[in-house]
Simulated assay, not measured.
Amino acid sequence: MTGRYSEDELIARLFAPIAGPAGLGLEDDAALLPASSEPMVATTDMIVAGVHFFADDPPAQIAKKALRVNLSDLAAKGAAPVGFLLSLALPPDWTNDWLAAFATGLAEDAALYGAPLIGGDTASTPGPLTISVTALGRTSRFAPRAGARPGDAIFVSGTIGDAALGLAVRRDPALAARLSPAARDWLLDRYLLPRPRLDLIETVRGGASAAMDVSDGLVGDLAKLCRASRVSALVEAPLVPLSTAAQEAIGLSPSLFETALTGGDDYEILFAADPAYRPPQGVVRIGAIVPGAAAPAILDASKTQMIFGKTSFSHF
């Protein structure tokens, strides 16, 4: 064929093959989900070129990021994915090849995470590429933000700050040049491609009194969890887990520690649980929930409260 796909052609050629049975071949106006005894969980996130990713990032990676940030929200609620809806607003310069690569990346992750496409929409826009995913999941036990209690311990998975430092590396060639190749590549990859913690769904269901994913920065997201639970918190900054690459970057520029704690895009799980809870490997205790309405206090190695220029990423 010549020219770009029509809307019907791009759906039939690129996205219908990704669709699960509930999507009805993407030939209907809605999906039809099977009944279940477990509650349904829904979440949606939008990513925009120039805000959440660089316009020249590989299209397959952009697709994966769009899906994975939503799967991260499901994991933090203790929900296993059922499927997702995709809405694409394409700028004037899109091409068939770009969209085919995007669809390939989406198909790979849909298969990897057991989250088939079940519907969506496409539109044109004069502005930047905009992608919205709505992910659906089911859970036997929903973990809200509002369940933390004084005395609970605070846990976090994985390592914190890699993605924010990856963005700093992307923006600062001088910093990139000073890092070892292994550290630079690790941080850049963590910014480009989140790892949703679906492996922790049972951990969240079994132990968390309150939970959320770390998407806007550990300090700011903990504050959100505390506000919802009507509590405060104490966190020991030296206990926050950092990757070897993050430690290398912070060693070169100590101010980047604040970036790591507040920068966002970690997509790890932050949760509160009974202090007797024993977390699985790769999950560490970093503090405690305390009574009160004050913002969480982040204490440095000398037990002095740290003051931040900002506590999290914000669009506004």
Rank of each mutant, 00 (worst) to 15 (best):
P128K: 11
A66N: 15
L165K: 05
L129P: 00
A211Q: 01
L33M: 12
R145G: 12
T122I: 01
G220V: 01
G166R: 01
M1T: 12
D213M: 01
A163C: 05
A22N: 10
A63N: 06
M40Q: 15
I160F: 10
D109N: 09
V133P: 05
P181Q: 08
L74V: 03
A210G: 07
G220P: 02
L188N: 09
G119P: 01
A101F: 04
G23M: 04
S302R: 11
R205K: 12
E236N: 15
A42M: 14
L193Q: 07
T244P: 00
Y191Q: 14
P150M: 10
T304S: 15
R278P: 00
A183G: 06
I307Y: 05
E27I: 05
A55I: 10
I201M: 03
A211H: 03
L99N: 11
G263C: 07
T125I: 00
T2N: 14
P150I: 07
L218S: 14
I160Y: 08
A168Y: 07
I47F: 09
E268A: 00
A110H: 06
G114S: 08
A208V: 02
W186V: 02
G158C: 01
D216T: 02
W98A: 15
S302G: 12
F84T: 06
D28T: 11
T122A: 04
I298Y: 10
L175H: 06
L74D: 11
I62T: 14
S232D: 03
T262G: 08
A294P: 05
A49V: 09
P81V: 03
L299E: 15
T125F: 01
D73P: 02
D221L: 04
S243N: 09
V51K: 09
E268Q: 02
A111C: 05
P194Q: 02
P291M: 15
L10A: 13
F53S: 12
A210M: 03
R195L: 04
R13G: 13
V156T: 06
